[in-house]
Design a protein around this nucleic acid. Sequence first.
DNA 1: CCCTAGCGTGCAACTAGTTGCACTGCACTC
DNA 2: GAGTGCAGTGCAACTAGTTGCACGCTAGGG
Lengths: 181, 181
Amino acid sequence: MALEHAILVSLDERAGTGYELARRFDRSIGFFWAATHQQIYRTLKRMVDLGWVTCREEAGDGRPDRKVYEPADAGRAELARWLVEPGEPETIRHELAVKVRGASLGDVAAVVAEVARHRELHAERLGAYRAVEEKDFPDASGLTGRRLHQHLVLRGGVRAEQALVDWCDEVLAALREDTRR
Amino acid sequence: MALEHAILVSLDERAGTGYELARRFDRSIGFFWAATHQQIYRTLKRMVDLGWVTCREEAGDGRPDRKVYEPADAGRAELARWLVEPGEPETIRHELAVKVRGASLGDVAAVVAEVARHRELHAERLGAYRAVEEKDFPDASGLTGRRLHQHLVLRGGVRAEQALVDWCDEVLAALREDTRR
DNA sequence: CCCTAGCGTGCAACTAGTTGCACTGCACTC
DNA sequence: GAGTGCAGTGCAACTAGTTGCACGCTAGGG
């Protein structure tokens, strides 16, 4: 499981509360590993038990208390251990593809509309990734270390979304052509 | 959830046993929706209860009995209903990206090796998809209906794997360049 | 003054997916 | 004749992830 490890990576970049982590997972980290706040809270609790993170409670002045988590040595050791461990290639769960494959068993026009909708969603994400790239990595050529790694992951997001947009376009063209006949 | 629907699509293409479905999920359908035989058996049972599929038991002559499943009208109706229902865009769970992002917290060389290994795995899959494409769809230009839909999904697999291979190459070049400095 | 949005925590109940095992029996090979 | 691979079914126990709700407090707008 990689949620613990994704959290460790994120916390290493900056300590934070469960809530903050959940927000990061809605953005940067979550671009390639989604998680809800529930999952994160439960996992953080488990990680404290394992000694992978430390938790310091800040009494809220007025506001409710916040629990700020930081990676512990055991967590960093676990991350290092996990990094060298071989993993499985990603298992794709592509619902839209199931719909395309089953299109002839229902309303093809509706499937076309659905693909068009997804095309726009992916184009939006692609735009968001590119915007982050321009803002945070205006000069990609000289990057090293952590900054380089962050940029490479973002590049993966760009490539994945671009591939999805292109695929949607191919599907739309072919299905529309087929309908016309 | 799309497992039921993926099963319905697969059964509509050809009736079969749970075991056969599991094997199809290891291949064509499983290229974009993975499932273990356990999941499939349990889901088939539920689908019988829902009246979405019918099950006819063939007494094995010598061999153990086999249960052959076929979509029922209620299943086809459910599939048609699901097809027009809008769905969420795919949530990516990209473990390798977590490793790349966390590379500076451990052994970068090991992460490079892991990326190289994944690169080969994705290249292999890409080759397999292309082989299926050449064999089953030698002339893609004149396809219509179900055959077209099948081919489009395969095209999605090709695009996704190609994007992954390209990304791995980009990561490898950048990390090796960074190590050299 | 109320409503909404943001920050922050968490429980309970659920669905989905994984892993490890157990059983049968055929065909093939070493 | 023992081991392996294939075809076929399935239970039990587990881990992971989702959904819906609840609580409390601040700040801002209408």
